[in-house]
């Protein structure tokens, strides 16, 4: 498998490490333990397209948001994951 890093170009998957679902947003302290439990432990088992976090540790050290189909492994988009998990200010 190869991932097209937006900074380094297409690179082999050995340069990357996988984290998981890119959609959970880190709750603020005020949201409490239930929201944090969801954030830390609960994940959907997606069959199909999902957004995933990959780390280009063997390259530019960018965290990437990779749109990948878990059934076909087809990667349709790769972008920087900047702010993907950031708590949305004012939305508690």
């Amino acid at each position: 498998m190869r991932i097209a890093c937006p900074y380094c170009g297409p690179r082999e998957n050995g340069e990357f490490s996988y984290l998981g679902d890119a959609t959970p947003v880190r709750p603020s302290l005020e949201q409490g333990v239930d929201a944090m439990l969801d954030y830390v432990f609960l994940r959907d088992n997606v069959a199909g397209e999902m957004q995933e976090l990959w780390y280009h540790g063997g390259g530019c050290r960018a965290w990437l948001k990779v749109t990948r189909n878990t059934l076909t492994h087809e990667i349709s988009a790769v972008e920087a994951a900047r702010g993907a998990g950031a708590a949305k200010v004012g939305k508690r």
């Binding site: 984290l19 880190r26 965290w63 920087a80 994951a81 900047r82 702010g83 998990g85 950031a86 708590a87």
Partner: peptide, 18 residues
């Protein structure tokens, strides 16, 4: 050493971009 660097980059890029 490596995992902490990765973790800190995660915090910096993904969680606290501001």
């Amino acid at each position: 050493a490596g995992p902490v660097m990765q973790h800190l980059e995660f915090c910096r890029q993904v969680l606290f971009p501001e």
